[in-house]
Design a protein around this nucleic acid. Structure first.
Lengths: 211, 211
DNA sequence: GATGGATTTGACCAAGTGGTCAATTCGTCA
DNA sequence: TGACGAATTGACCACTTGGTCAAATCCATC
């Protein structure tokens, strides 16, 4: 300890402040997209003067890149849950469940991703074309192996993944709509649990080979 | 005919010009969202001076409202395809197919909707809470009737609709990503036909009662 | 308690924003 | 043809934008 406990150390203060700017940026980017977001609004939500924001992140784009980077990391971590099981039903249930949990726990990340795609993915295009494309094609092989073994019905794996991504991310990206359709109240934990179970169940029934 | 054929009449000229501004606005709003879109960019894509744009649409918001209005109309029209069949399999196949066709034929509409939801739906909130909520709850009743008759498995109808909406709209909203994952080429008509058929098939298998 | 780098921030700037307006041009019809 | 309303548009305005900067303040270390 190099400083008084009640006053944060210099480096700890930096981390806290950086994080508060970072979090404010996430929420503004998620709502308004890159172009619509303003550094003034981000600074306001972070509770710092705008000049201070530019001390920690030199440009709006640098801040945006920092935010997207974290999102891509989180995506890959959720994706790994697909690989921990050999059985199709278990692997898919784990993966879909993890994606649903992510949509619930961190909707902002999903929304920023969506907004980035909507504008043509200028920043994450490289990720899509390399890392994500490789992930998808290697998992396609796994799906095809299951098909060959007769464990699942014959499908085009990539369109199957699109359905999983679309359905799970919908609970984050369209939360406003879901809330409006739920008498103005966000889904309760119980409601979400039902939705989560049903999504897993429907996806599995859609692809598993009949007994 | 009140004017020379090669020179459009005054009112026809108005319609053409209004439409070119309207279409330019759709594409800019779809890419950049309401806040990110600029009237200058819309005017540029429409090929008219900015002052001219403001002659036809007094404000950016008026233009945006005109655009969203058309989208809501189109949504309702696709939704009606759900009601034309009594058999669950046929009704659902028609509805999902219509939504897929819409995502293919007019991806911009879907993207503007998505962007509007992302920012909290300030403009279409009323539509969501009234017209859409009513549509959903009346179709929920139809689904429950099918369930009571044992024609489909027991599910929470609204989450089932969310899956349909998410999956079909994904082909419009995430076209950039889908293209990036398809070696940089947009889905061909053949590929899309496969995706369309598979989406319908998977949705049906997920909900239809086993024989 | 003096030093010096890290941090903070009000004031500022050039470029871009949505929108206005008056002067001009156009098309129609008497 | 002339008159008159519809349509066009360059110039302009107040305000917001992302970003800069220099002066002030903080704080770990000696």
């Amino acid at each position: 300890m190099t400083s008084h406990p009640s006053r944060p150390s210099r480096s700890a203060g930096r981390e806290v402040k950086e994080k508060s700017i970072f979090d404010a940026a996430r929420s503004v980017f998620a709502e308004l997209g890159f172009r619509g977001a303003t550094t003034a609004e981000i600074a306001r939500r972070a509770g710092v003067p705008k000049a201070n924001l530019h001390y920690y992140f030199p440009t709006k784009e640098a801040l945006y890149r920092a935010v997207t980077e974290q999102i891509l990391t989180a995506w890959l971590s959720a994706a790994s849950s697909f690989d921990e099981q050999d059985d199709p039903a278990q692997a898919l249930a784990a993966y879909v469940g993890a994606k649903m949990d992510m949509a619930r726990a961190d909707p902002l990340g999903s929304r920023i991703w969506a907004s980035e795609i909507l504008r043509g993915a200028p920043v994450i295009r490289d990720f899509l074309e390399t890392t994500l494309a490789e992930w998808l094609s290697s998992r396609e092989k796994i799906i095809r192996r299951w098909m060959d073994r007769g464990q699942i019905r014959p499908v085009e794996p990539r369109y199957f993944f699109y359905m999983i991504w679309a359905t799970t991310q919908h609970y984050a990206d369209f939360e406003t709509q879901i809330t409006a359709l739920n008498r103005g109240k966000p889904l309760s934990d119980e409601q979400f649990a039902v939705a989560r179970a049903q999504v897993i169940d429907t996806v599995l029934r859609g692809i598993l080979a009949p007994i």
